[in-house]
Design a protein around this nucleic acid. Sequence first.
DNA 1: GCTGTGCGCTAAGTATACCAAGCACCTGCT
DNA 2: AGCAGGTGCTTGGTATACTTAGCGCACAGC
Lengths: 121, 121
Amino acid sequence: MSEEEKGGTAWRSLGEFIRAQRELANLSMRQLAEIAKISNPYLSQVERGLYKPSADVLKSIANALQISAETMYAQAGLLDDSKGEAGSHHGVEHAIKIDPQLTVDQKEALIRIYRSFTSKG
Amino acid sequence: MSEEEKGGTAWRSLGEFIRAQRELANLSMRQLAEIAKISNPYLSQVERGLYKPSADVLKSIANALQISAETMYAQAGLLDDSKGEAGSHHGVEHAIKIDPQLTVDQKEALIRIYRSFTSKG
DNA sequence: GCTGTGCGCTAAGTATACCAAGCACCTGCT
DNA sequence: AGCAGGTGCTTGGTATACTTAGCGCACAGC
């Protein structure tokens, strides 16, 4: 049933998260695999959840995708959830609010768009 | 670069760190292995640096020793670099990327808008 | 048409993380 | 002298992370 029906991609697995991040970065599997120094078939299998990569592969992939290793581990469920950086859904709004580069108008616009995306489709 | 220069107590290896923590907690190998749900021979091998444990074993050991998983990963050298966004202005972009409620398309849209705001100031 | 190059995926193999059983040693008890 | 119960370590096997070779498909140029 519907993976997308909640209006968002709630990552069922680490693999889906990685795939989404890879596509966000506009990288092909071979490109990402090359940067992360792993083989492309293995990346394929990881993204489909067939294997759970070891920590240093995870770190390598995180680096290649320019996201922090901590975020990666959090997604992999390998950090104790005491951190609470990814889970809270005011994360985006909060980040917008405290961004010193944005004007108040811009913040309001971004938050409005963000809410339109998340407020049920 | 050696780990020594990171200041403070420098453990030559993850195994030595684990062993020291275990002894500090006055636990035998079998006791710790039991709590961490791993076998005691394996723990022995890990402490002597013969094998590098996977992330979830690491987490389990950290849990059993009542130290944070992050400390463990840092000791394992799995967190140290990855400065992908730590110091840069990616706070908002990062929050967007890891938000599970957004679809990939929505993320792209938001990030594009955000960049358009921040690129010209 | 055919050829070359990109994509993601499959198949089969190698490397290694991890476990169950057991060994050698020590210490206390009878 | 035994044996019971503790320690850490070795051995041999199984499960799984990871690689190399190659498949099938789509889209370019000759």
